[in-house]
Simulated scan of single mutants.
Amino acid sequence: MFDRIKALKHRWQDLKQIAQLDQRDLDDLGMTRDQIEAFVRMPQDVPDRVVAMAQIFGLTEAQVRADHDRYHELLHTCGQCKDRKNCGKVLERGALAQPADAEFCLNKSSFTAGLI
């Protein structure tokens, strides 16, 4: 319980810092304020989940991260997922998991398109 409270406190501090960023800071980061706030609010395991799910579809981490904007879209989509339980079950299967096991994945179309 203490760890959750500590994490919430850090997240709140991060959001305060984001609110103080000026347009130049945002331009340097290449993200909008809303994108940064969404990134801070998403579950911490989302980047790992995106890469692991992409690997099930035959993609490498380098391919997933190659296009900065597309990568942020994948993270945002994954962060909005309401099917984390099924996702976790598929990811637990590791190398045995197949794309057909992930019909629920909101990023499936991007993964099957090879992110091109």
Score class of each variant (00 low, 15 high):
residue 57 F to I: 01
residue 112 T to V: 14
residue 62 A to R: 15
residue 2 F to Y: 14
residue 30 G to E: 05
residue 106 L to F: 12
residue 65 R to M: 13
residue 21 L to F: 06
residue 59 L to S: 03
residue 38 A to Q: 13
residue 102 A to Q: 06
residue 40 V to C: 08
residue 105 C to D: 05
residue 89 K to V: 04
residue 85 K to P: 04
residue 12 W to F: 12
residue 86 N to G: 03
residue 111 F to P: 01
residue 40 V to F: 03
residue 30 G to V: 02
residue 3 D to G: 11
residue 107 N to M: 12
residue 9 K to F: 10
residue 12 W to R: 14
residue 116 I to R: 15
residue 74 L to H: 00
residue 98 Q to H: 06
residue 8 L to W: 10
residue 92 E to M: 10
residue 4 R to Q: 14
residue 46 V to A: 07
residue 30 G to Y: 03
residue 77 T to Q: 08
residue 35 Q to A: 13
residue 101 D to L: 03
residue 41 R to A: 10
residue 45 D to R: 01
residue 49 R to L: 07
residue 68 H to I: 10
residue 52 A to Q: 08
residue 110 S to K: 14
residue 55 Q to C: 03
residue 8 L to G: 14
residue 87 C to P: 01
residue 60 T to W: 04
residue 1 M to S: 15
residue 47 P to A: 05
residue 77 T to H: 10
residue 67 D to F: 03
residue 68 H to F: 15
residue 23 Q to D: 15
residue 114 G to Y: 08
residue 7 A to W: 10
residue 106 L to R: 15
residue 67 D to V: 06
residue 103 E to D: 13
residue 86 N to Y: 03
residue 57 F to N: 03
residue 14 D to L: 12
residue 44 Q to V: 10
residue 98 Q to S: 05
residue 71 Y to N: 03
residue 69 D to F: 10
residue 99 P to Y: 07
residue 15 L to K: 07
residue 57 F to Y: 07
residue 18 I to Y: 01
residue 38 A to S: 11
residue 77 T to V: 14
residue 10 H to R: 08
residue 3 D to F: 11
residue 30 G to R: 03
residue 85 K to S: 00
residue 107 N to A: 13
residue 70 R to Y: 12
residue 86 N to S: 05
residue 15 L to H: 01
residue 49 R to V: 07
residue 62 A to N: 11
residue 68 H to L: 12
residue 107 N to G: 11
residue 112 T to K: 15
residue 42 M to Y: 06
residue 63 Q to W: 04
residue 47 P to Y: 00
residue 73 E to Y: 11
residue 71 Y to L: 02
residue 18 I to V: 06
residue 9 K to M: 14
residue 5 I to C: 14
residue 49 R to T: 06
residue 104 F to A: 00
residue 60 T to I: 10
residue 77 T to K: 11
residue 9 K to L: 12
residue 21 L to M: 02
residue 95 A to H: 04
residue 7 A to G: 04
residue 74 L to M: 06
residue 16 K to H: 05
residue 87 C to V: 05
residue 79 G to R: 08
residue 95 A to G: 04
residue 26 L to G: 01
residue 27 D to W: 11
residue 93 R to N: 01
residue 9 K to Y: 09
residue 78 C to W: 06
residue 37 E to F: 07
residue 19 A to R: 11
residue 57 F to V: 04
residue 13 Q to D: 10
residue 44 Q to Y: 00
residue 45 D to K: 07
residue 48 D to T: 01
residue 43 P to W: 04
residue 56 I to M: 05
residue 82 K to S: 09
residue 72 H to Y: 15
residue 66 A to M: 07
residue 104 F to R: 00
residue 109 S to H: 15
residue 24 R to Y: 11
residue 68 H to G: 12
residue 42 M to W: 08
residue 78 C to R: 03
residue 66 A to C: 04
residue 41 R to N: 14
residue 33 R to G: 04
residue 15 L to F: 01
residue 4 R to P: 13
residue 69 D to M: 09
residue 95 A to M: 01
